[in-house]
Simulated scan of single mutants.
Amino acid sequence: MQYVEVEKKFALPNPEALKAKLDALGAKPSEPTRQIDQYYNAPHRDFLAPQAISEWLRIRTESRGASINYKRWHPIKALVKTHADEYESGVADVEAVRRLLEALDFRPLITVDKTREAWTLPDIEIVFDHVAGAGHFVEFEFKGDATGVEDASTRLQQFIASLDMELGEPINRGYPHILLGRQH
């Protein structure tokens, strides 16, 4: 199980051009899925308090089931993050988990409603997201074997450069940041 995530995200003005390029490379798309992500704030520390938000707790529901996820981005105090520790597990009873969190004084912060389509190549997953209220985005995530975060980041950057495409503005924040109006 991989517990470190290395990804790059961009606003995407023209998803179809990138999809055509990926298709030419032999990537295959998954069926699009709608994901509803409910983000929570912790009672023991305010995830929104620091200028550079470095952690989130999320419950995701979608047609294939539900999951709970915690991410802690690094470097913790940096405005631009390089990677995240990520812990995720399936949830059999999502309503029980919601009630459990609320009983422990975790409070809902924001809901992200998105449609996601994943494309896969060896070592790289490319995810197209349409986020209600925010627009179109693409995330590139390194999924291969690497000697560390720096190696994975370099290889991910090389892949993105090899596409030779205008992707739009790099996004160094998550969808909850965007919907909450947070810059970092």
Rank of each mutant, 00 (worst) to 15 (best):
I124F: 12
D105N: 11
R99G: 03
I110V: 15
A118K: 13
E95P: 07
F106R: 02
A152P: 01
D123A: 11
L121Y: 05
N172R: 02
D123L: 04
E88K: 14
D85C: 02
I171S: 00
K143P: 00
L79I: 11
A118M: 02
V131I: 15
G174H: 09
V112F: 08
T120P: 04
V80N: 09
S153L: 09
D105P: 04
R99A: 06
E125N: 09
E150G: 01
I160Q: 04
T120M: 11
S89Y: 13
T111A: 00
V97C: 05
K81I: 00
T82H: 09
W119H: 09
L101R: 05
R107L: 12
H83W: 07
Q157V: 03
D129Y: 06
E141W: 13
L109G: 03
F137S: 04
G90S: 15
D113L: 14
R173A: 06
D145A: 08
I160H: 04
A132D: 05
F142A: 11
A134N: 12
K143E: 00
E169G: 05
V138R: 13
L121G: 03
T115P: 00
V80G: 01
G135F: 05
L156W: 08
V149S: 02
L79V: 11
R173Q: 12
D105T: 07
R155H: 00
G174C: 14
G168Y: 02
I160K: 05
T120F: 09
E95Q: 15
H130N: 11
T120G: 05
H83K: 04
T115Q: 08
T154N: 13
M165A: 15
F137W: 04
V91R: 08
D151Y: 14
N172Y: 00
A146I: 03
S89L: 12
L104T: 04
V131C: 06
A161V: 09
E102D: 06
L163Q: 12
S162I: 12
E169A: 15
F106K: 00
I171V: 15
D129H: 10
L100P: 01
V112T: 07
G135Q: 06
A84W: 01
A146H: 01
R173T: 07
S89E: 10
F137Y: 12
L100F: 08
R99Q: 12
V91W: 09
F142Q: 06
D93N: 14
R98L: 03
G133F: 14
A152T: 02
F159M: 11
E150V: 10
E95I: 13
G135P: 08
L121F: 07
V94Q: 08
S89D: 14
K143C: 01
